[in-house]
Design a protein around this nucleic acid. Sequence first.
DNA 1: CAATAGGCTAAACAAGTGTTCAACGGGTGT
DNA 2: ACACCCGTTGAACACTTGTTTAGCCTATTG
Lengths: 233, 233
Amino acid sequence: MRSTTSSSSGPRRPAATGADDLTTRARIRDAAIARFARDGFGASLRTIAADAGVSAGLVVHHFGSKDGLRAACDTYVFEAVRDAKTEAVSPENPDAGPMSLLAQLATIEDYAPVFEYTLRSLQAGGDLARSFVAHLTEVTQEYLAAGVAAGTIRPSRDEAARASYLVSLSLGSLLVDGVLRDRTEPRDPGADLREYVGRVMLPALEVFTEGLFVEPTLLDAYVQHTTHQEETP
Amino acid sequence: MRSTTSSSSGPRRPAATGADDLTTRARIRDAAIARFARDGFGASLRTIAADAGVSAGLVVHHFGSKDGLRAACDTYVFEAVRDAKTEAVSPENPDAGPMSLLAQLATIEDYAPVFEYTLRSLQAGGDLARSFVAHLTEVTQEYLAAGVAAGTIRPSRDEAARASYLVSLSLGSLLVDGVLRDRTEPRDPGADLREYVGRVMLPALEVFTEGLFVEPTLLDAYVQHTTHQEETP
DNA sequence: CAATAGGCTAAACAAGTGTTCAACGGGTGT
DNA sequence: ACACCCGTTGAACACTTGTTTAGCCTATTG
């Protein structure tokens, strides 16, 4: 029996867009990931089928429905990101913090569709986006904790809240930047990300090393305000 | 002649959802804004028409097409935000910076649909989002310049880049937070925003007053790196 | 070699979409 | 009073969507 319907255990190497020696099912899934990433999840089954060089009926034959295809793409992308994370974590690169994973992910050429799909999924919301953000928050918290222990990163009054906030900052900024990009001209995700980093790196480093306010008045007032509220409920 | 087709100069008071003494055209527009904000721009004309209590044909009769309706909503929301900005700018509130406009906008009950529509438009991209971000960046830059002049905000090596970055940070974080929210249960935008602020205020104030890195190593290295690149092209 | 199973396609289907069209009704103006 | 505009409706149209079904064609299997 060939690996015709291997839904549970996908292949290890993810989304090599040039390889056509894949299972038809895998080819459809890769085409769907690329098309979903480019046009959003409103892309039609017929377009995806045409991209994969198959008929529309075959897609639903393999995945049951469009939602099934979407679910298959989600789990595949999630596993790809999870696998890529472990080998991409290297804390000595000069990045503005928790988005180093994403940045390194996009540099790898093969992962470009996965990276785009992840951003598109974050834009659309849904379970993949939620679990992805949760996962990234967890990684970020560990990353920050290591920095705090090493004395390179300032401690926070609420480490979990800070990690969550930093993730939403980084991802949100990246998302806004991508959403505002003109979608008529042809896009190169690698170049886009590189331009984004070049445009954002200086203010990011400024804010994250020097801060924004010269005096801690606002922070002190807020901390005192909340602690007073806690003492007298 | 009544004000039946007043497209260029809309009414001053925007989007009072309870008032039913409006022009039918205005009623359709308000219903579209609310429905677009809640369900996204894929909402059908028939749904919007049903919300406004009219037929689907009347909508296109008034606005030409769905894109025309979308454009009318965009310009109306943009003008509403622009008008609300001038009277909502009060620099003494303890907010984390450039999103004070948005926050104050959402507190006003009548502006809730406008606020939601703006976020939805930012999520979907397009011209309204672009011009809105550009406008907000401009306001933010003036706000920051005033703070720098007053000595409350640190100067930046690139004020424009910092303003743009801070806007994308604030809006992006807000957008991610809204997108990740569970959309099955009924939502209250005011309560959502309040909860978001309560969850984010502490880490935001921390980062923006104390920074993240204890030593300016990364920033110094980057600045030196770029300046050296500029000297030897 | 014949049979059977399954990848695969083309056509059809039902539902939903934006849009058009003919008609109606109640005001307004002459 | 009559005509006329304009807001308004309901049905129809053309189209796209996801999905189903009948059948073909290849290849593995007995």
